[in-house]
Nucleic acid binder design. Sequence first.
DNA 1: TTTTGTATTCATGTATTCAATCTGAATTAT
DNA 2: ATAATTCAGATTGAATACATGAATACAAAA
Lengths: 220, 220
Amino acid sequence: MATKETGRSVNLTDFVYQELRTRILSGNYKEGEALTELGIAGELDVSRTPVREALRQLEQEELVELRPNRGAVVKGISLNDIRDIYEIRSLIEGLAAARVAEQATTEEMNQLEETLDLTQFYLDRKDYEKLESMDGRFHQQLYELCRSRMLRRILKDLHNYVGQSRGASLKTEGRAQASIEEHRRVLEAMRARDPEQAKARMTEHVLNTRANLSKIYRIQ
Amino acid sequence: MATKETGRSVNLTDFVYQELRTRILSGNYKEGEALTELGIAGELDVSRTPVREALRQLEQEELVELRPNRGAVVKGISLNDIRDIYEIRSLIEGLAAARVAEQATTEEMNQLEETLDLTQFYLDRKDYEKLESMDGRFHQQLYELCRSRMLRRILKDLHNYVGQSRGASLKTEGRAQASIEEHRRVLEAMRARDPEQAKARMTEHVLNTRANLSKIYRIQ
DNA sequence: TTTTGTATTCATGTATTCAATCTGAATTAT
DNA sequence: ATAATTCAGATTGAATACATGAATACAAAA
């Protein structure tokens, strides 16, 4: 057992975790909403045990608050959080890019390039769901390739938090194409084994994304 | 129930979590060591339930790896991790200091000053345990006062990871006094409401700590 | 009217039970 | 002798049972 219609979770705890996480980050569960263990267990048709374990994980990344003996409350992502995420990323994501420029193999760079080609492919097809997924994959791949456990941890976290707003940003006129081109320039610098340029271009890319986002949301 | 000789845990899960976390970060449990739920439960005299929940939390911060159906393995902090932590902190901890300079109340700055006074007090008494704790408290207070959920999350995490090496650093000749003075200069800039200077001085402080650390450990 | 005590209810905290899975040694087959 | 197989023991995964604590409603007292 343990795949639960959605598939590919190895156990129920992971399944519940993914499910709750998605619902919170998508805004399906709203800020301040109280979650009861039995309620979730009933909804997902599992016992309280995996629910409790999943809630503990979510508490660790501050997506819920666990009040002792009083249950869980949803903590969403605020505009202030988003503003800070982009500010932090503008400071450290360039570092990850520099590391990739220094250490990644040609094979790994080819993987990045494939992601970029796919992104362009889906943009041409106007398949915005896949486009969004591929745009995110470029960053996720980068986090793996930078060979730094700490950078990967932090950047993955931050990136996941802004999934929603990144999607909105990519739907604005011309931004997706610009994003692809910025990614490409980062990759070029990596292929040229120029860490400083890779860093600068990645930083600029993050700042551009933030600037674009500030047209949609009221941040900073 | 629920205080378990060590005191102040509100429930057994938190108690187990703190206990395991401490043992891992202090090197008491070594990298690669396999942990069984029943073994821990027996050692701490609790059932498997709170142990499982604690392990899920520890997995979230990558202090253990959970292999499905095969149990938990300890993941320590490597020298590479420490190197990266200081590099990341040198980039973003200044941002936190700048925020404090902008937003903290005079009362809050007084709290920081009290911590500094206490640090000096314990240094004069050569009470290195308390000294270490107070030196850390200055940073922890800063993370709370910067009023950024994301900065607080990340910096607290990173700071906890390097607890051991920070302790070692403070024991080297003259470093504790230098650290206090650097903290004081950061606070001065905050009191002067000069975010840029607070940032610069904090960044320098982090870099100094790293430089001092590199005399002990073989980092970068 | 406000406060305080108390019973009830509901949710969480923990232990226990049972099922599924993995590991490794003994056994069998090649 | 080596490889494949089987099976027992141990460990994790999940559900359920039991215990504890918090919140609410309501009654009695000030």
